[in-house]
Computed example of a mutant assay.
Amino acid sequence: MTMDTSVRDHFLAAVRQRRSFYGISDEAVVPDERIEEIIKEAVKHTPSSFNSQSARIVLLLKQEHKKFWNITTETLRKIVADPEQFKATQEKMNAFAAGYGTVLFFEDQTVIEGLQQQFASYKDNFPKWSAHSSGMHQFVVWTALETEGFGASLQHYNPLVDEEVKRTWGLPDSWSLIAQMPFGKPVAQPGEKTFKPLEERIKIFK
């Protein structure tokens, strides 16, 4: 099946425009139902090795979103004892909490362990392939949210917050937290993006 040219162009345009937005607000950009639809489409259609479908996502909106960043803030405060040194961290946490929502990306280790037992010759590869699939889920959700008018960034405060997150939202122990994506209405432009020469990054043989 040949894809329509306009669809291809739209996809690549979305890829080009995806950026890291750190200045975000909690103003609604689209209805919550649309955000939920994006998450469901991403989980259903993003590929995974052996069609394992090991990705798990938790969508936190509004006050639940702020609760996550409060947990992260207090966790980090216990590590950085000096209040002066913690100021920069506090500002960063406040910036994330100012958004509308956060997407938590997990991988279900029960699925991965099951594949390791079923296909022992690939045992060492399944955790790597799981990470690949999670990265694709992150990219799909990130790009889709930005096409709706949100700004987002990808954060990694795991494993520091893992246990508290599982307790707070009643998540299975087998869910391993991979990344966190705060998003909201952009209130500041992203920084300049630079590119290394493509000639150094791509080789083509015909």
Rank of each mutant, 00 (worst) to 15 (best):
K92W: 14
S121V: 09
I57K: 13
T75P: 15
S49W: 14
E64K: 05
P31E: 13
S153V: 04
Q138L: 00
R56A: 06
A152R: 12
L104P: 11
Q53T: 00
Q118R: 09
G101A: 02
L60R: 05
N51R: 14
S48C: 12
E74V: 10
Q155T: 03
A98P: 05
E91Q: 11
L76P: 07
A131Q: 14
T110D: 03
I79V: 15
V30C: 03
S52W: 05
V80E: 15
Q63N: 15
M136K: 05
T102P: 02
S134H: 03
E84Q: 14
P31R: 11
S134W: 08
K66N: 14
P31M: 04
Q116C: 09
N125A: 10
A131C: 11
Q90L: 13
Y157D: 00
S133V: 15
G135N: 00
A98R: 04
K40A: 03
G151L: 08
V43C: 08
S134K: 07
S48N: 11
E84N: 13
I35Y: 12
K87G: 02
T143E: 12
H156A: 05
V58H: 06
I71Y: 10
E91S: 04
I71W: 14
T143K: 04
V58G: 13
V58P: 11
T89Y: 06
E91F: 14
V58R: 12
R34F: 00
V140C: 04
I38H: 08
Q53P: 02
A97T: 12
E36K: 04
V111N: 10
D108T: 05
W69C: 10
H137R: 07
Q138C: 11
S48F: 11
E33G: 09
I39K: 00
L60D: 06
F50S: 03
Q118V: 02
R56E: 15
A88K: 13
F150W: 08
K44I: 02
T143R: 08
L104I: 10
F150S: 12
T75M: 15
S52I: 14
L60V: 04
S48P: 05
F126Y: 00
T75Q: 15
K66M: 06
T147A: 00
Q116G: 09
R77Y: 06
T89I: 10
A152D: 08
E27H: 08
V111L: 00
G99L: 05
V58S: 09
K62T: 08
S54I: 01
K66I: 00
E36A: 14
F96H: 11
T110C: 00
F96W: 03
I79H: 09
P159G: 11
A28L: 12
Q53R: 10
Q117L: 08
A144N: 09
K67N: 14
L145S: 08
V80R: 10
S48G: 09
T89C: 07
G99F: 02
F96E: 05
F150G: 13
